[in-house]
Design a protein around this nucleic acid. Structure first.
Length: 471
RNA sequence: GGCGCCAUAGCCAAGCGGUAAGGCAGAGGUCUGCAAAACCUUUACGCCCCGGUUCAAAUCCGGGUGGCGCCUCCA
């Protein structure tokens, strides 16, 4: 398995620190609002990465933080007259609602910045002791120039940064390039005790602290959006490596942006849609499908048309799942047909194609194409005459389930048993009417069900139904 | 100014030197008593342009054109 490593600038073969185990960290959201489709990309992509690593047999410990204290959270709290932690808690809860809808599983640990102040202080203190950081009027800054590898991840050189001159110049700093590890408290803001007075952590330091506490001094994979490469991840590396003297992380993975009309979707630009509002109209899964249909590093354009395309594309998979389940549940038991080896091999080739694609830098687009290959082969088999054996299709079903589950293309089950029994009784009644050639009655039953959102499909194996989930 | 990315059909998208995956939409057809939002088939003589390397290039190299991102909070 190989993937593109921002640190080396090329695809690297993945070799974990500890055989069979993966320690990975992703920068999570700052919780002061619902997250938008652009934010969703990294959640979905790195959930997929984690699922795939597990699928390939690794035991994965995955940590994703919540930034629950920062300027934006404080601002929002002040606007609403609430505490920062009330705001954070609200949007953490909302995060999990949307994440679940998107098929994004909870991480192994979801730590909060404010639960790790002690670890943050430990790192800042160590950096001050080692001479990599200095206090200044209650703030503490990192001496960027003192870390000789600064800029290695982003390819930015110290000299270039200087000439860019867009860096924050402050009276407090020895050098404009230095960045804050700890910020002195402003009146009315939440604050914690520290050797330099009351204050709160800077943004970059929290990730270093949570990585160290939950995953250790050196981890396998660190991921996030491309916009975090500089300065956030660069700073994380500097802080962590100067603190421990160890390499911080072996593989850095960064996802591309989601654009609208070719411009990056972002809260500050205002050109965003929240996942919640799109999901209410189209459902969550089309968003997941849209994100995974292209490579995680390419920029992708979001539009409602695209989401509709993804929704239609997903229907094709779900139709196949329904068709196959119906076939397997209703096909008569029979002897295995001869010469079905070829059919089975065809089914299996879809899985091989998927694994090959995913092993090469998580090519989800080609992985999904493999699912559609399988879908086509299943549809063709089910409709062929003579019908394939039940055994062959049970094999196909196992494959299809495995692949759709890996990609998270799984619908919520409707457990409305009474309704289902009603439908099945109606279908039985219609079957009798049809047998008696009472087509008027049969059509009446069919349109009655249709009005209730139930579509009937007459297949050679019997009558299949589909409940149109209008979500 | 510095660093970097992208350009494939009406739309989305894979492809990483061997003769254009997959999805949506469109067109034709199949199953059916009739239907179906189901299924099947089909849809790029060409991969932004111009040169070059090679037996062979969407794929590599050089030069253009167009678009985007980071350097400031940002997934």
């Amino acid at each position: 398995m190989q993937f593109y490593n921002t640190l080396s600038g090329k695809k690297d073969e993945f070799i974990p620190i500890e055989e069979g185990k993966v320690r990975m960290y992703a920068c999570g959201p700052t919780v002061y609002n619902f997250f938008h489709v652009g934010n969703a990309r990294c959640f979905v992509v790195f959930d997929m990465l984690r699922r795939y690593l597990e699928y390939r047999g690794y035991e994965v410990k995955f940590v994703q933080n919540f930034t629950d204290i920062d300027d934006k959270v404080i601002k929002k709290a002040n606007e609403e007259g609430l505490t920062y932690s009330e705001i954070a808690k609200r949007y953490i809860d909302e995060y999990f609602v949307d994440a679940k809808g998107l098929g994004v599983r909870p991480a192994t640990v979801h730590p909060l910045a404010t639960d790790n102040i002690d670890m943050i202080l430990h790192i800042v203190k160590t950096l001050v002791e080692k001479g990599y950081a200095y206090p200044s009027n209650g703030d503490v800054y990192f001496r960027t120039r003192k870390y000789k590898d600064y800029g290695k991840l982003s390819g930015m050189l110290i000299e270039d940064l200087e000439s860019g001159a867009r860096i924050d110049v402050s009276e407090q700093k020895e050098d404009p390039l230095d960045f804050a590890l700890w910020k002195a408290a402003k009146p009315g803001e939440p604050a914690w005790e520290s050797p330099w007075g009351m204050g709160r952590p800077g943004w970059h330091i929290e990730c270093s602290a949570m990585v160290m506490r939950y995953l250790g001094e050196t981890i396998d994979i660190h991921c996030g959006g491309q916009d975090l490469i500089f300065p956030h991840h660069e700073n994380e590396i500097a802080q962590s490596q100067c603190c421990t003297g160890m390499q911080f992380c072996h593989y850095w993975l960064h996802n591309g942006y989601i654009n609208i009309d070719n411009h990056k979707m972002s809260k500050s630009a205002g050109n965003f849609f929240t996942v919640r509002e799109i999901a209410e109209k189209y459902g969550y899964l089309p968003i997941r499908h849209f994100i995974l249909s292209s490579h995680y590093r390419s920029p992708i354009n979001f539009s409602k048309d695209i989401i509709e395309q993804s929704k239609a594309a997903l229907e094709r998979i779900f139709n196949c799942v329904d068709t196959l389940n119906f076939f397997v549940n209703n096909a008569p038991e029979e002897r295995v047909r001869e010469n079905e080896g070829e059919l089975i091999a065809k089914f299996d080739s879809a899985k091989s194609k998927m694994i090959e694609a995913m092993d090469d830098d998580f090519n989800t687009g080609e992985g999904i194409a493999a699912i559609y290959d399988l879908v086509k082969d299943i549809n063709t088999a089910v409709n062929s005459n003579p019908a394939p054996s039940k055994g062959a299709m049970i094999h196909a079903k196992a494959l299809l389930d495995e692949m759709t589950e890996l990609f998270g293309f799984v619908r919520d089950k409707d457990d409305n048993d009474d309704f289902i029994r009603e439908i099945e009784e109606a279908i039985e009644k219609r079957k009798k009417a049809k047998k008696a050639k009472n087509y008027a009655e049969a059509d009446r039953i069919r349109s009655e069900l249709l009005e209730r959102g139930v579509v009937l499909l007459d297949t050679p194996t019997g009558t299949q139904y589909r409940i149109n989930a209008q979500k």
